[in-house]
Structures are given as C-alpha cells and as structure tokens.
C-alpha cells in the first residue's frame, strides 16, 4: 500500500508542480504573489473544453488555440492591470491585490457563463494502466509527471540559457539597472506573463484530462497548494517548485492514507510551516535568493 500511496502522491504532486512552475516564475521576475495564476489554470482548462466542442472534437487544435488564448489572457492581466501600477510606481502590495481582484473576476466570470457544475472533460491520452508489484499506475499519471519535468527543463533552458532569460534574470535583480542596460522591461514582463499563461493552460488541460472533469473551483482548490509548493521549494527557484509540489503531494497522500483523511491538508500545511521555521527561505532558496 505504501508504494501505491507514493505513486498517488507523486501524481497529485505533479499536478501541483505543473501549476506552481508558472507561479514561481512570475514571482522570480516581479516578486509578485500572483493570485490569478490558479485562475488562469482554470481558464485554460475551460478554453480547451470549449474549443474542443467548438472545433468538432479536434483535441490538438483545441489545445493549441487554448494555449494561445490563455497566453493572451496572461498578457492582458499584465498589460491592462499591472503595467499601470508599475508606471505609477505603486507599492508591491497593490499588485498583489490587483491579482486577487483579477482572480475573483476570472473565477466568477467563468462561473456566471458556464455555471458552477462540474463539466465532463475528454481524456485523449487514456492508454490504460500497468502494475508495479501490487500498485496500479495509469499511463496518464506517467504522462503528467513527464510533462511536469519537461516543462521545468524547457523553462530552465529558456531562463538560464537564452538571451531573453538573461533579460528576465537581470530584471528580477534590479529593474532600474536592467532598463539602463537597454532591456525593454515591459516586454520582458509581458513575456513572463504569457509563458505563465501558457503553462497554466497546459497544466489545466492535463489535470482536466486526468480527472475527466473540470469545474470552476479547480483553481481555488489547487491555489493554496501551489503557493505552498512554491514556498516549500523556495520561491523563484524553478526546480524548487517541482520538488516542492511533489513533496506536498506525497505528504498529503501519506497523511490521508495513514493518519486521517479529514486532516490531510492541515497536516501538509503544518509541515510547510515547520519547514519554514528551520529554513525560512524554503528548501532550495538561498539566503541570497537565486531568482529565476
């Protein structure tokens, strides 16, 4: 049973990891707690479902269009709300509240349009299951984990290996200095938001396929877990977000399986607080935080 529970935990953890990568990336560049991240994730899943039905069940066409749309949503979030704040030199807090407001708008907007019921979501990658000992693993679980790790790898390459990544890193270190170096701050930040939107869309679609349902609360449900995952790994550190997600997932599963199903989240969150006691910057965060 332990093996089965660990596999369950890794799967749940991968879904957290998928969403928290996007969150930690925005955080790395802007030092902004993006509450709207999990709303983008929900939005992405709904776009895919909507387009899947609209295009006559062409899944990959729908996914591609949905990625573009969610990317645009991410861009709009920055362009129409956050950029104004940056121009005004508003306090960091204002940005946080704005994303909170945006997430309320997204969530409730979708709810008013689609209703709050769960919607059935097509599973395009149902390849059956296989056994490791007594434990059952479905291929969907494997795919989710593979996607999480490859997205992390791709993003790491972008951030640490390309010129654009260099611009992102320098923006995160010092906005003024980066501007003086000729970096177009606004486009760098816009780009970050577009990427976080794309990530959110992919993860929303993956999770939707895994559970074969999407609902309006899927974002708020996962939101706090992704914050916890990012914090546990050390905000701004991409591999940290993935590892943090997996750890939270496993703790939660073990807690549910061996201690109490009612308290599963409480136990996971308590462990997060305890870890922060000993490592206030998270597991992989350096004292001098190594931002994106």
């Amino acid at each position: 049973m332990l093996l089965q529970q660990i596999i369950n935990g890794l799967t749940i953890g991968s879904t957290y990891a998928l969403v928290s990568i996007g969150f930690t990336m925005v955080f790395g560049v802007l030092e902004l707690t993006n509450f709207a991240n999990s709303s983008l994730y929900m939005l992405g899943a709904y776009f895919t479902l909507m387009l899947y039905n609209a295009t006559g069940h062409h899944f990959f066409v729908a996914l591609l269009m949905s990625i573009i749309l969610t990317g645009i949503a991410g861009y709009c979030l920055d362009r129409f709300a956050l950029r104004r704040l940056r121009r005004k030199n508003a306090p960091k807090l204002a940005g946080l509240i704005t994303t909170l407001g945006m997430s309320m708008i997204f969530d409730n907007g979708i709810m008013l349009i689609f209703g709050s019921e769960s919607k059935s979501f097509p599973n395009q990658i149902d390849l059956g299951r296989f056994y490791i000992g007594n434990a059952i693993v479905s291929w969907t679980q494997v795919i989710i984990m593979v996607v999480a790790f490859s997205l992390m790898a791709i993003l790491s390459i972008i951030v640490y290996g390309t010129k654009l990544g260099k611009a992102m890193r320098s923006t995160s270190q010092n906005v003024e200095a980066a501007r003086l170096m000729g970096i177009n701050i606004n486009s760098v930040i816009a780009f970050t938001f577009i990427i976080s939107g794309i990530l959110a869309c992919i993860s929303g679609t993956m999770v939707g396929m895994y559970y074969q349902t999407v609902d309006v609360n899927m974002g708020t449900m996962i939101g706090m877990k992704t914050f916890a995952a990012a914090i546990l790994g050390g905000v701004g550190v991409l591999p940290g977000a993935v590892i943090g997600g997996l750890i939270i997932g496993i703790i939660e599963t073990i807690a549910a399986g061996y201690i109490s199903t009612g308290y599963r989240d409480a136990i996971a969150f308590t462990i997060l607080i305890i870890v922060l006691l000993f490592k206030p910057t998270g597991l992989f965060g350096q004292k001098q935080i190594n931002k994106v």
Binding site: Q4, N8, T11, A256, G262
Partner: peptide, 21 residues
C-alpha cells in the same frame, strides 16, 4: 468510515487505496 472536506481536492486515490486494503 472516511470523511473528506468537499471543495479542497478532487483526488480521492489516497482514501481509496487505504480502503482497498
């Protein structure tokens, strides 16, 4: 006899694995 808090998760695999034993 397992309770879950609605609205916090959609993943019941830990509970089900436990019950299965």
């Amino acid at each position: 006899n397992e309770a879950f808090v609605p609205g916090t998760t959609k993943d019941f695999s830990p509970i089900i694995s436990k019950i299965k034993t």
